[in-house]
Computed example of a mutant assay.
Amino acid sequence: MLKSYKTEIHPTEKQKHKINRTIGVCRFIYNFYIAENKEIYKAEKSFMSGMDFSKWRSNEFLPENPEYLWIREVSSKAVKQSIMNGEKAFRKFFRKQSGFTRFKKKNRSDVKAYFPRNNSSDWTIERHRLKIPTLGFVRLKEKGYIPMGSMVKSGTVSMKAGRYYVSVLIEAEEKPYDVPEGNGIGIDLGIKDFAVVSTMENPFANINKTKSVRDLEKRLKREQRRLSRKYESLNVRNKETKGEATRQNIHKQTIKVQKLHQRLSCIRENHINQVIRKVIRQKPRFITMEDLNVSGMMKNRHLAKAVQGQNFHSFRLKLADKCRKNGIELRIADRWYPSSRLCSECGSIRKDLKLSDRTYRCDACGFVIDRDRNASINLLNAKVYTVAL
C-alpha cells in the first residue's frame, strides 16, 4: 500500500537557492512546452508528446540557443517530470476532462520540483532530517512524522509563502480495521453551522464566524489594498532606481499576503480534520451526506464567499478517504433529495419552505424541529443513494 506524507522542512540558504532554481526551471520548461504545443494545436489540432519535446529540446533547441544552457544546471529528472505534467494536462484536454492548459505564473502557481529514487541511498529518512536527491540532508520541522526506515518511491519539494515543504510517497503495510457495528450517521452541511450530525446534540460551528478568522480576513484586506497601491505606484514611477525599489517592496508585500492566505487555509483545513476525526470516532456503520451543487451555490453572489470558505469539496474528499481506511460505507444522497422539506416524523413534504425558515414546522402533524437537524435525520433514513468509491 502506498501512503503519502507532507511536512515542512528547514533547508539551508544554499539548499533554498537550489530549490528556487529548480522550481523556476520547471515552471519555465512547463510554459515552454505549453507555448510550443499552442502553436502546433492552432495549425494541426494536435500536440507534441513529452518524449518528442524532450528530444527536440536536448538535440536541437539547446545546441542552437546556448543562452538557455542554464536549464541543464538543475536535476534532469525534475525537468522531465514537468514536461510529463504538461503532456498529462494536454491529454486531459483532448479527452474533454478539463479546459485548455494554462501557463504557470510566478508566485501564483503551485509548481513542485520532482525528485525520484535513483539508488538506495536516496531519500534516507531519519527522525529529524531527510536526505533528498541533489540536495542532501534537509532538516524536518516535525520530527518523527515520517516513519523511519520506510521505502520512499518518489517525492516533491515545493515552496509556498516563503515556506518549504516536502511530499514523499512511501510503501506502508495496510493495517486491518475492525468492521464497525454501530448505527448510521446523517450529516447535513450548511453555512450557518458547518455540519449538523444526526447523532450529536451540538452542531459543528462555522469556523469563518470566529473572531480569529474575521480578524485575519480584515488584515488580509488591508494588506491586499497595500499591494494594489504598490502596483499603482510602480506604473507611475519611471525612474529605474525608484522602480527597482518598488519591485522589491511589491515582492515583500506579496509574501505577506501569501502568508495570510496560507494561515486562513490552515485554520479551515484543521477545522475540517477535527470534525472528521470526531465523526469517525463514533465508529458508525455508514455515513450519509448530500451531493451538494457547490458550483451552483457559488453563482449566488450573496452566498458565494460564505460557501467558498466552508470547503465542502475538501471535506467530502477527506471524509471519503477516512471512511475507506476504517471500513465505513459513505453514502451520497442525490442533490434533489428533499432532505430539508421532508418531515422526519411523518414523511410529508412542505413545499413552501424558504431558505430564511430556520425552524421546520410540519403542516400535517405539527412537528417542530430545527431545519438542519431535520435534514440530517432525513439523510440518515435515506433509502436512495450511491456509495462513494
Rank of each mutant, 00 (worst) to 15 (best):
F93P: 01
K141Y: 01
Y165G: 00
Y145N: 01
T124Q: 14
Y165R: 07
G136Q: 06
M151W: 08
D188E: 09
E87N: 11
I83G: 04
F90Y: 15
S167E: 08
E181A: 09
L135N: 05
S167W: 00
G149I: 06
R95T: 05
R95V: 02
F137A: 06
A89E: 05
F100E: 09
H128F: 09
Y114G: 02
N119W: 02
K96W: 03
M84P: 00
K112S: 03
I187V: 15
T134L: 04
V157G: 02
L135A: 04
S121L: 12
R108S: 08
E173M: 12
R139W: 05
I146Q: 04
R117L: 09
N119S: 14
G99I: 09
G149F: 09
M159N: 11
W123D: 03
N183A: 13
N118L: 14
H128T: 14
G86Y: 08
D188I: 09
T134F: 03
F103Y: 15
L135S: 03
P176D: 12
M84S: 13
P147I: 07
R117T: 15
W123F: 12
K106R: 14
K175Y: 04
R91C: 01
N119P: 03
F100V: 11
G99R: 11
Q97M: 15
Q81N: 15
T124R: 14
F103A: 12
T124K: 15
I146T: 05
K153V: 13
S98H: 10
E174T: 13
V179E: 14
T134G: 02
P133I: 09
I125W: 11
F137H: 10
M151D: 10
I187G: 06
G155Y: 01
G136S: 06
W123P: 01
V166E: 00
F93W: 11
V138N: 00
A113R: 02
P116W: 09
K105T: 06
K141A: 00
R117V: 06
G186Y: 08
I187L: 15
I83C: 07
Y164C: 05
V138Q: 01
S158E: 04
G184M: 05
S109N: 13
A89F: 08
N183I: 11
T101A: 15
Q81H: 14
K96Q: 11
G184F: 05
K112M: 03
R91F: 05
R91M: 10
N85R: 14
V138R: 00
G86P: 02
P176M: 10
V157T: 03
E181M: 09
H128N: 13
G184E: 10
S109C: 07
E126Q: 13
K160C: 06
P147S: 11
Y114E: 06
V157S: 00
T124C: 10
V111N: 04
A113T: 05
G182Q: 14
R129M: 06
K143E: 13
R91A: 04
F90G: 02
I170Y: 01
P180T: 13
R102M: 07
N118D: 14
L135P: 00
Y164R: 08
I187Q: 09
Y114K: 04
K106I: 13
S121M: 10
T156Q: 04
I125T: 09
Y164N: 06
T101L: 13
Y145C: 02
